[in-house]
């Protein structure tokens, strides 16, 4: 059973459209959804949670069709963190506990308060007075405290300093120690995703350019830096993106399409994404 299965989903509004989206998150894995602002990440997440209906196609979460009546109950198994804080300003973490206790079936009060302590969040301070980092940590505490099987995180690390980000990524990493737990995390901070993801999916202008195992991507692609005239001898089939200056060419290449003996540099997911998005500009 897949944690998330998106089949042939299309959604358009005005001048933006998500076209023919097919995406799978196998159980027990972490999938990073990358894309520039406006690529369709948040829309995809809303459609996953059935907060938005696709024009066509189906989405299956933990084996259940998300348009079915059973899905509402299944949301008990899904922890969601959105990119902005959505708790009313006047509530404090204590109030949130009282509210959530009566919303989620598996709400674990003890666990919630232990997260508050780990994250150093004051129980009686109202959200108006929380920093962005604190609001994010609280959303994460809430998402984890009802023992979900799936975490859906939309830009859960943006706006946070590197220390907090690392702390939070660790939490998500630990979450998937259990093989029945899966995570979908969308971000435009690619380096964060590179740290913990098993799969990387790249959404660009509403289309999924690829969804691959992260480590395989790092094995398959490399960076090639050559003077302009030498570069001309590289077969076009190997070049997946390039940047030209007056002095040299830097290109993203597929290692197995290169003639042997040409030295390349290791690349990062961020570089892969940047080159693929820019194309041949």
């Amino acid at each position: 059973m897949y944690a998330i299965e998106i089949k042939n989903v299309n959604k358009s509004f005005g001048d933006f459209a998500i076209r023919n989206l097919n995406l799978i998150l196998p159980s027990g894995c972490i999938l990073g959804l990358v894309g520039e602002n406006g690529a369709g990440k948040s829309t995809t997440i809303k459609m996953i949670m059935n907060a938005l209906s696709p024009d066509s196609g189906t989405i299956s979460i933990l084996g259940t069709d998300n348009q079915s009546d059973a899905f509402t109950k299944l949301k008990n198994e899904i922890g969601v963190v959105l990119d902005e804080s959505y708790f009313p300003d006047v509530l404090n973490p204590q109030n949130v506990n009282a509210v959530m206790k009566n919303i989620y079936q598996n709400w674990d009060e003890k666990l919630y308060f232990s997260y508050l302590q780990t994250f150093n969040l004051p129980k009686e301070k109202i959200f108006k007075e929380f920093s962005r980092g604190m609001k994010m940590k609280l959303s994460i505490a809430v998402a984890l405290s009802h023992h979900p099987k799936l975490l859906v995180l939309d830009e859960a690390t943006s706006g946070l300093d590197p220390f907090v980000r690392d702390e939070i990524l660790d939490v998500f990493n630990e979450f998937t120690r259990d093989e029945t737990h899966s995570v979908l995390i969308s971000s435009h901070i690619v380096s964060d995703l590179e740290k913990i993801c098993d799969y990387i999916a790249f959404l660009h202008n509403g289309s999924l350019l690829f969804c691959e195992e992260k480590d395989r991507l790092l094995e398959e692609y490399a960076i090639l830096r050559l003077p302009r005239d030498t570069f001309a001898s590289i077969p076009a089939s190997a070049i997946k993106g390039k940047k030209q200056t007056d002095y040299d060419v830097t290109a993203l290449v597929k290692k197995n399409a290169l003639p042997s003996g040409i030295p390349t540099e290791k690349t990062t997911i961020e570089e892969i994404i940047l080159f693929l998005a820019k194309g041949d500009k």
């Binding site: 027990g28 894995c29 990493n173 630990e174 998937t176 120690r177 093989e179 740290k195 913990i196 993801c197 098993d198 195992e213 992260k214 480590d215």
Partner: peptide, 14 residues
């Protein structure tokens, strides 16, 4: 496989 991956902070697939 899973514990090794998590302890080394690398992918389970790997």
């Amino acid at each position: 496989i899973r514990n090794l991956a998590k302890d080394l902070r690398i992918s389970v697939i790997t």
